[in-house]
Amino acid sequence: MKKIYSRPQSLYDVVTHYCPGCGHGIVHKLVAQVVDELQIREKVIAVAPVGCAVLAYDYWNFDCTEAAHGRALAVATGIKRMRPETVVFTYQGDGDLAAIGTNETIHTANRGENLTTIFINNAVYGMTGGQMAPTTLLGQKTTTTPHGRKEQEGRPLKISELLAQLEGVYYVERVSLHTPQQVINAQKAIKQAFQNQIEEKGFSLVEILSPCPTYWNCSAQEAMDWIAEFMVKEFPLGRIK
């Protein structure tokens, strides 16, 4: 019998620190699978900013750097401009990319930097204990919107649609993880985003709706269902650019 599904070479065989049912674990695997498939493990450099996934270098078997909160795309710009032959990607959460780092996100995209961004949208700040994020839904309870997010606390930020307006942006797709089929779509989008960089097409971003059972206060399956029922309505899936 032959192994038809196993751990990718680019993923260390260790237990992660992520909570049970967390989307980060799935996406780490997808990124590692794509890196293996495109045979770029020896050329790829990851930039992991502050967030639950800042420890990604404990799981990926390739070069990686941390970045200050919100500054991953500036760090990635510095790396990519000096080593265009490498494949540089950032792996950012919603707070990092669409709150503190919005300026870097917009201007890096606007410069059309030849980079790949994996954007994990789980509608909360996970690492710090479940606070409101720019993508928190209206009415969604978090530790800083105890009675549900109200409009003057901002509406769910459609950063992907925003970025799609910029000419420097080549590819924007929003995918999800709430079923195996969605996970397969997510992997295709991630592969496309990396492929774009290899073909020097410019800035590619994949937004991934990701479950956070711990701070959505529900089980892993309920989190997946919540994405399917609510998040997908607010953040429609599909190719945006």
Binding site: I45, V47, T65, A67, A68, R71, A74, V75, A76, T77, G78, I79, K80, R81, M82, R83, T86, N103, E104, H107
Partner: peptide, 12 residues
């Protein structure tokens, strides 16, 4: 952004 770009170029 500038100091963090320098961070990246230096890291490279």
């Amino acid at each position: 952004a500038a100091i963090n770009m320098v961070f990246g170029a230096s890291a490279a």
